[in-house]
Structure formats: structure tokens, C-alpha cells
Design a protein around this nucleic acid. Structure first.
Lengths: 197, 197
DNA sequence: ATATTAAACGGACCGTGGTCCGTTTACTCT
DNA sequence: AGAGTAAACGGACCACGGTCCGTTTAATAT
């Protein structure tokens, strides 16, 4: 290896970079005109003028592609509740942050709907996805901060399960439940869980 | 229509009945030797000596087949908490029944694992399945009985989401969490939700 | 017994996500 | 510039769940 900036990972080959660009562009266009359900891996490959193998080499799976597509908004969302202003970010009491981050999550899920859904069914269950793990840890941390003692990890998981995208979308889209009611119910839930100890 | 016992639905044709029998038997055998994952619709059809179309005519989908396979135990489970002895059945206070039925559900899910999982992904989401609806109603009823006022329907859904089979199985099988801890966490959750009002 | 008919049947067919492997191509080293 | 190499490429291929539709068959009416 010659002197200079040592790349953390091997530099991406130029053709690979070009194709990744093309694929993401193509994916967004296909979704725009046919919805997430209309995006199949075959179509994407053809539309982007690329072999099917290339698509899977890049993203691993359909879910992986969806994760990549969501990456920007996901990162943005995460940094909002980790470094942003209260009540979402640090500075507010735990309970308030808990309430705020549930509400934020509900808004996020409703905004990106099917994309989140499709991204969730990644390989090996939807629980090993890094974003989900981070989310759990965050809730756990807030629970601890509020003095919740018995098994904060498990309770965090339970609370997170409550915000399962498929459930939220089903309630809103199929049963016509207003998002505000979901947020109120979340607030009630976490308040009761945290209250007194 | 000639006199006699009027069949509620048109009587099942003899060949249909025979094939249903054969298919269920074959399905159980295939699962026994290859697990739920090893049961594909093609294999089932071939193994039962029946056309593929017949399989789908009977059960509608793979999930439908799983539901049928679970039917007995499911019915049994349901009648236990609807008509059985306390604390699961009627007669005990709402909170105790809530705790007991969560524990029962956890045991049920852990016992039938992949079968429940496969049965869940029925058409149009896993929330319209009759069994799920009944389950929600039951929890809602118990919440009401304990005097939980704000949106018992939504809260019941949240609590039910907490017992999502995929989550439970993931915790136990991948992370090695002991079932007792899950039950304790459930007990803590519902107790806090119901407590005071 | 025979005719009629609605239901059940079977398996070819389709679209999907995902894999495999022989071929091509962008970099690097001399 | 030329050779060598690891990576990227592409598309044929696979298994799966699910559909379609021409054919067979069990039940009934005559």
C-alpha cells in the first residue's frame, strides 16, 4: 500500500459507483410512478440498464434496497432524537422524551409507509436491523432514566412493538384511526408504565 | 330439497372430503420430518398425490393451511380463556385474567412456534384474521372491566402487539431469553397499565 | 340406466425474490 | 504501455406461492 490516505474500506470501483447511482435513481422513479409494490427487482434491473445480479450484489435483498432508500430520512430522524433540541433530544425529562419520540416515530412511519414496511422484512427477522436495535436501546435508556427498574430491556422491546409499522399503518389506513389518537394512546401507555418508580 | 336435516352449507362431495383428509395427514407428516419451513405447497401436493390446484382450492393459501392445522389447538386455547376455570376463565378479577391470558398466549406461541408464524401472514395483513380480532376484543373487555377508560380498543391492540409471535420467538430462540422473564414483563406491563383508574 | 350439472380436479403457467458462475473491466504494479 | 488480478458484471437458472382453465367426476333428476 503506498502512502496517502488509507481508505477504511477498499475504494469503490468507478463502475460500481456509477451503477449504484443509476439504481437508486431508477428505484425512486419506479416507486414514484408505481408505488413501492410496483418496484420489483427484475424491473429495477431492466429499468436501470443493469444485470439482476448487480442489483443483489449492491443491496443484498429487496429489503436491503429499501433500507438504503430510507437511509437519509432514517439518519435524520435518529439524529433528531439523539442530538436535537428537546423534548425529542437530550435536555428534557425522560418521560417527555419518551412521549415525544413515540410521536416522532408514528409520524415517521405514516410518512414513509410502505417503504418502512418493505425495509422491515430484512433477513433474519426484523429485529436485527441496526436501526431497530438503536431504537430499542434509546427507549431502554429513557426508561432507566425515569427509574424504571425491572428488565428495562424487555419493556423497551414491548413498547417498541407497540409502534410496529404494520400495525400503525393498518389502523390508520384500514380502520381510519386518526394519528392523533395513536399518539394519545402511546402517551397514555408510557406515562402509566413509568409512573411511580 | 328433500325433507331431513337441512345442511347449513352444501354437503361436501366425497372426493373433496377424502382429499382434505389426505392433505392434512400429509401436511402433518411433512412438518414432522422437515419442519414447517420444509412444507411447500408443491411438495404437499405431490406427497398427498393430489394436484396443486386442489391444495389451493381447499386452503386458499399457505397461511390458510397453517390456520387449519392450528385450528384444534387454537379453538381449545380460546375456549379455555372464554369458558374455562379462573384465573384464565371468567370468575377472577380482570387484572388476574389479563395476566393469565398473556401467560397462556406466550406458552401457546412458544409451543406452536413456526406454525403460528406461518399462519399469521394471512392475506391482507395479520390483523384481520378472526382469531386475532377475538383476542383483541377479549383484552379490551378485560381492560374495560378493570375500569380502563381512555380508548380501550387501542390499548388492547397495543398490549396484543406486545405478544407478537415473531418478537417472542426471536427473544427466546435468538437471544435466549427465558419464557418466565417474558411472562414477568407482561405481568408488570398490564399491572402498570391498569393500576389506578 | 341415462342425462345433466355443478363442483372438484390437475398441472401447465406466471411473477417474484434470490443464487450461481463464466465473462468483462477497472485499477495497480512494473 | 502491458500484464496481472481482484472486483464487478449479467443473465440464465432455481424454488416458491399462487392462478387459470380445460377435463373429470360425484351427486341428482328423469
Amino acid at each position: 500500500m503506498r502512502p496517502g490516505v488509507a481508505p477504511v474500506t477498499a475504494a469503490e470501483r468507478s463502475d460500481a459507483a456509477r451503477n449504484r447511482e443509476r439504481l437508486l435513481r431508477a428505484a425512486r422513479e419506479l416507486i414514484e410512478e408505481g408505488g413501492v409494490a410496483g418496484l420489483t427487482m427484475d424491473r429495477l434491473a431492466e429499468y436501470a440498464g443493469v444485470g439482476k445480479g448487480t442489483v443483489f450484489r449492491r443491496f443484498g435483498s429487496r429489503a436491503g434496497l429499501m433500507v438504503t432508500l430510507l437511509n437519509d430520512s432514517e439518519t435524520d430522524f435518529q439524529s433528531r432524537f439523539m442530538f436535537g433540541p428537546p423534548p425529542l433530544g437530550p435536555g428534557a425529562p425522560g418521560l417527555e422524551r419518551l412521549i415525544a419520540c413515540g410521536i416522532g416515530r408514528i409520524q415517521y412511519v405514516l410518512a414513509f409507509g410502505d417503504l418502512v414496511l418493505a425495509a422491515e422484512m430484512a433477513s433474519r427477522g426484523r429485529f436485527e436491523v441496526p436501526a431497530a436495535a438503536l431504537w430499542n436501546r434509546h427507549i431502554e435508556m429513557l426508561l432507566r432514566q425515569e427509574g424504571y427498574a425491572p428488565e428495562p430491556g424487555l419493556m423497551a422491546g414491548s413498547l417498541a412493538a407497540t409502534l410496529d409499522p404494520e400495525r400503525l399503518l393498518n389502523l390508520v389506513r384500514v380502520h381510519g384511526v386518526a394519528p392523533e389518537r395513536l399518539m394519545a394512546s402511546w402517551q397514555d401507555l408510557v406515562t402509566r408504565v413509568v409512573r411511580g418508580a
